[in-house]
């Protein structure tokens, strides 16, 4: 039962980014955030890490330490990309706000 719930929740969590991307595409039509693609790449990497993280829980019903380590590494990569993006936005906006 729990595993079924996990599958449903994971599917929902995978569908929502598709909707989010639609909005993101609309935003990019109007605004000039040059690092939009960097943010998408960062977010996608984090989501990929999350998928790896959740897979053992769904299929094995337990945690596998190696996979956990691997997924955290991917999430770390994603967060690093996001950090770059967020810092860049902060610096750009700071300049404009002057």
């Amino acid at each position: 039962m729990i595993r079924l719930l996990l599958i449903v929740c994971t599917l929902v969590s995978l569908l929502l980014p598709i909707l989010s991307y639609r909005y993101f595409y609309q935003i990019m039509k109007l605004i000039k955030v040059r690092i939009g693609s960097v943010l998408v790449l960062g977010a996608l990497t984090v989501v990929a890490g999350y998928i790896f993280f959740i897979l053992p829980w769904i299929f094995v019903g337990d945690d596998i330490e190696e996979i956990r380590f691997f997924s955290y590494s991917i999430i770390l990569l994603g967060l690093s990309i996001l950090t770059y993006g967020v810092v860049k936005i902060y610096l750009d906006w700071k300049e404009v706000m002057k």
Partner: peptide
Amino acid sequence: PIYASLFYPIGIIIIEI
């Protein structure tokens, strides 16, 4: 136990929303 892992997809869903 396994039910604790439900927190992750729920958390992710909230973030996405």
